[in-house]
Design a protein around this nucleic acid. Sequence first.
DNA 1: TGTGACTAGTTTCAATGTGACTATCGAGCC
DNA 2: GGCTCGATAGTCACATTGAAACTAGTCACA
Lengths: 197, 197
Amino acid sequence: MPLDRGSPLALTVLALLRYRPLHPYGIQRLLKQWGKDQVVNVGQRTGLYRTIDRLGEAGLIRVRETGRDQQYPERTVYEITDDGQVTLRRWLDEMLSVPRQEFPQFPAALSNALMLAPDELAQALERREQVVAGTLAALEEQLADTGVPRVAMLEVEYLRAVTEAEARWLRGVVEDLRGGRLTWSRESLEEAAAALE
Amino acid sequence: MPLDRGSPLALTVLALLRYRPLHPYGIQRLLKQWGKDQVVNVGQRTGLYRTIDRLGEAGLIRVRETGRDQQYPERTVYEITDDGQVTLRRWLDEMLSVPRQEFPQFPAALSNALMLAPDELAQALERREQVVAGTLAALEEQLADTGVPRVAMLEVEYLRAVTEAEARWLRGVVEDLRGGRLTWSRESLEEAAAALE
DNA sequence: TGTGACTAGTTTCAATGTGACTATCGAGCC
DNA sequence: GGCTCGATAGTCACATTGAAACTAGTCACA
């Protein structure tokens, strides 16, 4: 059970334990406090506990101590092993350098856009535009907050870059739809489909 | 079992069956032929069969006929139901208009960039740059191929937009790393971490 | 004494990702 | 004839992931 692939959560847990031994709940709190909940799914604790179990079985982390600190329930504190340190580096390097084929919902949905009438599509994309503009603003705000070294904000920079591209693209398409520069009809599409097949 | 959430694959299968009743293997072939394998995971057939089962149980598709055409193994041809038509519209609208929180690997990895030395990070990101440049070129090529109406290429347009943003961002960061405009040391980071906690 | 918020963890169910495995048919090779 | 190869079609098994519900103790406060 060598655990050859690193999930975002597993990577982040390992990295955090490298910084300091901690118990699961503490990991969750610290990750949220550091805003990592933007990029890893720490919301559902189930996933966190399962990840920790797997990391333990693979020997990448181990129990350091277990005990209680009067007012709190029992806590199991984990620490990273040497094996964990090595694996962490490997995972990080691979996840950074090799883009992984993922299948987000939006492009898949877009690829069926022709099912809708131009006006319906415009409405749906406008609603998306609103939300995306909101998250973009939030990202900008985070970047404006100085005091944090840039290297610790790279993921926010990256997210801003791609979110901005999405927002811009959405604006363009909606304008084209509203301006009639992008249209289609059932007939024209049936021809095209027939031609493809 | 009303199946309230649509996965990329489920959406695409429904959409395809709306266009024409077909058997699972045929669905896979046609999706690949239409290049949908870029945006939905049709590579592993297991997922496809399971999706079809679920769609059937939910009453969104039904068996139209099952039989064999001498030289081929037995085939079960499915068709979409009225319920399926309605659900398809609902899913499509929602997937287009409401961005779903997803957790891709790259941002999660990036958020641990400070574990590496500046030079190591630069190397990893350069390797990524290469690959991303390649996929970007492939997307451009698809878009240059005229003959397909624009509405049928929206997902490619979108992917180009965000991929281009990623490529540009990567170039910028690598340049800053190589030029020494983006650096850090263990000490400076420990201070920052302490301040955050 | 009750209520809500925080801490900590478990259980359950559904969906996804991946790889390996079985089996049939037709075509070409020796 | 016997052989392999590739396309067709489908199944099995296993691990991971996502989301929600459920249990339970502690603390603050009214």
